[in-house]
Amino acid sequence: MRIKEVKLRKVLNSFAKPTLEVEVNGVFSSLPSGTSKSKHEIGDVDVDSVLRRFPVRSLIGKEVNDLRDILEVEKEFLRYGNAALALSLSLVKALAREEGKKPYELFGKKGRPIPLVKIVGGGKHARGPDIQEFLVFPKRRNPKSIFLCSEFFHHVGKILREKKTLFGRDLEGGWVTSLKDLEVLKLLREEIDEGGFKLELGVDIAASSLFDGKYHLMGTKGREEMMKFVRSLMKDYDLKYVEDPLEEEDYDGFRELSKEGFVCGDDIFATNPERLRPVARAAIVKPNQVGSLEKTIEFVEKVRELNMMPIMSHRSQDTEDPILTHLAIGLGIPMIKIGISGGERTAKLNELLRVS
């Protein structure tokens, strides 16, 4: 494929903030942004600066014929931060269209990721509970289980409304409630069990956002008290997924908690192969944390080498671009974390339904 046209433009993300979109040969990809961020992320691009400085003309006429070529082109533009990632993802889409393929087919695998979806939000995403995300995922590996998650989402919303504790939705489409952390967990656990929903329950504590030398989760807690509290949550509410239970430098604490439950690391790894250690059972994959498609692929491969599970994830300030779904499928990732409500979320879930 010959690169004939490249355009960069400023567009809006789901939080009505500016972000970068890169268009190549008529197809485009745009960058998401996080609200709760690891200090090890490369950071968001300065869109106006990139629009002024990015050497669009240097791309015109280049030949891109496979994924290896795309990764070689990406190396030339890494100094522009996440703009290099947006370029690479646009090239993936453009090359796939040129060859009559779906974007995931360029990566060599066809996974069947199950959805990990937010039901209730808190933390930096919403006023309410300290825990940032209350999550569910289906017990059975079936892409159409998206509808089971959707049914449960609306079921919980109805109950919160009846209790007069519902106050809208958060950045990722999760319900916002005045209920406290343990009240939310109790409600979700009871509704799953009593309603016969074939779902597992999990949380993203996002502990780094609650840490300033001590943890501020339902009061103030030191490290040992926090670990004891997380253990009690796993046991009392039968949690099958616990993301970021401790702050992002506590490798030893992650290792200890992972012996007792399914612990996933996000901020601690930041999709950076150099930060990855076998201290959790799973690792979140957010390409814009590292700003490179090549580094993202390297990270996923290393996660597998360490016998951990990679989990593809959206960001709180996302866009309607469904490329994340194709990355999850094409890289053979078994789970994809996406909100269940909001156009920027359903764009990815609907793409999963189409492809699967």
Rank of each mutant, 00 (worst) to 15 (best):
T346A: 10
F299Y: 13
P322E: 06
V92E: 04
D266C: 01
S178N: 08
L188Q: 07
P18V: 13
L306K: 11
V22S: 00
F197R: 03
L239P: 05
K259V: 03
L185Y: 01
L331Y: 03
G261L: 01
L179C: 02
L188C: 08
K228M: 14
P334R: 00
E256M: 10
V47N: 06
E23N: 03
H154E: 13
V47F: 03
V27N: 05
T325P: 09
A86I: 04
S49N: 13
V184R: 02
R52F: 12
K235Y: 09
D212A: 12
G196Q: 01
V47W: 01
A86Y: 07
L85D: 03
V45D: 02
M234E: 04
K240M: 11
D204I: 01
E320W: 10
E5Q: 08
G261Y: 04
L188D: 01
R2D: 12
M312G: 01
I192P: 00
V176H: 00
K198R: 15
T325H: 05
V176F: 07
M218D: 15
F211T: 05
Y241S: 02
E344T: 06
V120H: 00
R277C: 05
L89F: 05
V117M: 10
F152Q: 00
I205N: 01
V117R: 03
E243A: 01
V92M: 11
L91F: 03
V355G: 00
G332V: 06
Y241C: 00
L276Y: 02
G332S: 00
L257P: 05
L293D: 04
L59E: 03
D212Q: 12
V303E: 00
V117F: 12
A280H: 03
R52G: 12
D69S: 13
R9H: 10
D66T: 05
P310L: 03
L187M: 09
I192A: 04
K62H: 14
A328L: 10
A84N: 11
E298P: 00
L12I: 08
R315D: 04
S232R: 13
T19R: 08
I297G: 02
K139M: 15
E72A: 12
K17I: 11
K109N: 11
L135K: 01
K118R: 15
G343P: 13
S341G: 11
D48L: 12
A283N: 04
A207Y: 04
R2M: 14
K109L: 14
S29D: 07
P143A: 14
P113F: 09
W175D: 06
L257R: 00
V45F: 08
S341V: 15
G342F: 11
R53H: 13
P273R: 04
N65I: 15
R223T: 04
R354D: 14
